[in-house]
């Protein structure tokens, strides 16, 4: 009798979980034709159970939202630099995605061996680099070591980019409500003027192990997505700049860019939608050089 009751409870719990997962895993992105689709993970390389679970959710969502690539916001491989760490903390959890032709583009974090730039599956040309996908030009920065040479390079690349969307990503956040780390104001003093001057639209960062969407700062949208493998539960100290925060579970982002719209959806380890929204690209200013 007791066994039957137990089985019945387990069955009901199971059905409940299936129903919850079914409703929770709802794609809220428009899936427009010819849009650029990608996923965002930060601080992913822990090799723990949570990272594998997030990777599994990414795979499930890819069935509905076929993203072509993933941007990695640093701390890609935690722990000692060994061949097995690359396997356990990257190749295995994302194997189905890698096998499915998804490309990963990594930025370096403070826990990363700089030689990750030589690891083919991270598609890095250098410790900082740039690449284009459709209407988006990505600028991948090495925020651990922002020397004058990198700043000069960034200025040149931003200046010469004619892409409608300019997206930067780096490990250390310029704006963050994290209790443990928080905003890197030292770096912000150097980067923000360039971002503003050359029309960067969106910046993604990690380092703080949670998700946060920051209110537009000087016309730029900042996201922290540093919880794809590590979580600092309850670490967000909400301020006026916090538009949305989630520090209760691991998470990742899905992004779709189509025309002047960037749509995003944030998904937790359990598959539920944590945040969703759209950013409209402002109409570019026309600077007339013609004499009056």
């Amino acid at each position: 009798m007791r066994r039957h009751v137990r089985d019945l409870i387990l069955l009901l719990v199971g059905i409940g979980l299936i129903v919850e997962t079914h409703y929770a895993q709802k794609l809220l992105l428009p899936l427009k034709e010819k849009s650029v689709r990608f996923a965002v993970i930060g601080d992913s390389g822990s090799g723990n159970k949570g990272q594998y679970e997030v990777a599994q959710r990414m795979l499930e969502y890819r069935q509905k939202f076929p993203f072509e690539f993933v941007i990695m916001l640093g701390d890609n491989i935690y722990g000692t630099d060994s061949s097995s760490a690359y396997t356990k903390n990257f190749e295995l959890p994302y194997k189905p995605l890698l096998d499915g032709g998804v490309k990963f583009y990594a930025a370096l974090g403070n826990h990363d061996n700089p030689d990750q730039r030589l690891y083919k599956l991270f598609n890095m040309q250098n410790r900082y680099y740039t690449y284009t996908k459709g209407d988006i030009r990505f600028f991948v920065l090495d925020s651990r070591y922002m020397d004058p040479e990198q700043l000069k390079w960034l200025k040149k690349e931003l200046q010469s980019s004619g892409s409608p969307w300019k997206i930067c990503y780096l490990h250390h956040p310029l704006y963050s409500s994290g209790g443990a780390h928080g905003s890197d104001t030292d770096l912000r003093g150097l980067l923000e003027p360039l971002f503003v001057k050359y029309g960067v639209n969106v910046v993604f960062a990690g380092h703080d192990h949670f998700y946060e969407r920051v209110r537009s700062q000087k016309g730029i949208y900042y996201f922290i997505s540093g919880a794809a493998g590590k979580l600092r539960r309850g670490n967000i100290r909400r301020t006026e700049m916090t538009a949305k925060g989630f520090d209760q579970d691991l998470s990742f982002m899905l992004v779709e860019v189509s025309g002047d719209e960037l749509h995003f959806q944030v998904i937790s380890r359990t598959g539920s939608s944590v945040d969703v929204g759209m950013i409209q690209r402002p109409v570019p200013k026309v600077i007339s050089s013609a004499p009056n």
């Binding site: 000692t80 651990r144 070591y145 922002m146 700043l151 150097l190």
Partner: peptide
Amino acid sequence: PKGVPLTTMPATLLQNLPQL
């Protein structure tokens, strides 16, 4: 040491040190 993170160099300090 392997596995020990690299502490971030303050960006503004780097602007004042000889380039390498």
